[in-house]
């Protein structure tokens, strides 16, 4: 399954780099604009489960790397032992200045909370997302807290360290 998928991907899309990590696992690096088409193509090839949407801050390179973790649902018991098991990491790199990416909610509906989370923790904007409002955090942060240049110690000192004890 994986070798044919690798050939198909490299033949169909321009600028896509495929690395086979293991027998049933591969990593795909795609340019930013082709993410929706590649994702739709992978979904139609059997990878119908978006397990996770994650982000990595490569501060020295000045890039964010957004990672889509795709697997496929097991429909029969025999799938667990056969070579039907697939695990694909679809990655794309976006610049750190004004990071923006197209939302993939129309392909995978469950991407909605993941995109909201990445928006609030990394400050990546997702075009076409219906509600990019905070998901977990309660306060406003000047720099989104999961970025590498967010100084956690300083923030904690200023915020929680400044609160005085009430008694004694």
């Amino acid at each position: 399954m994986i070798p044919s998928l690798q050939k198909d991907l490299e033949a169909t899309f321009k600028g896509v780099e495929v690395t086979v990590v293991e027998d049933s696992r591969m990593s795909v690096l795609a340019p930013r604009d082709s993410i929706p088409v590649v994702l739709r193509y992978l979904k139609e090839s059997g990878l119908d489960h978006l397990a996770l949407l994650s982000c990595v801050d490569w501060i020295k390179e000045g890039k964010f790397e957004v990672v889509y973790v795709l697997t496929c649902y097991m429909r029969n018991d025999t799938d667990y032992t056969s070579d039907q098991r697939l695990h694909v990491l679809l990655k794309t790199e976006i610049p750190r200045e004004k990071p923006a990416l197209k939302s993939v909610i129309d392909i995978f509906e469950n991407a909605e909370p993941y995109e909201r989370e990445i928006h609030e923790l990394y400050g990546v904007h997702f075009d076409g997302h219906p509600r990019l409002i905070p998901l977990l955090l309660e306060r406003d942060y000047e720099i989104p807290p999961f970025r590498k240049d967010f100084d956690t110690r300083k923030y904690v000192e200023e915020t929680f360290g400044s609160i005085p004890p009430v008694e004694g």
Partner: peptide, 16 residues
Amino acid sequence: GGMYWDSYNTIKHLDR
């Protein structure tokens, strides 16, 4: 605060 002493989103002293 325990192991969350340096956390950006966890309070340290509840009795405050």
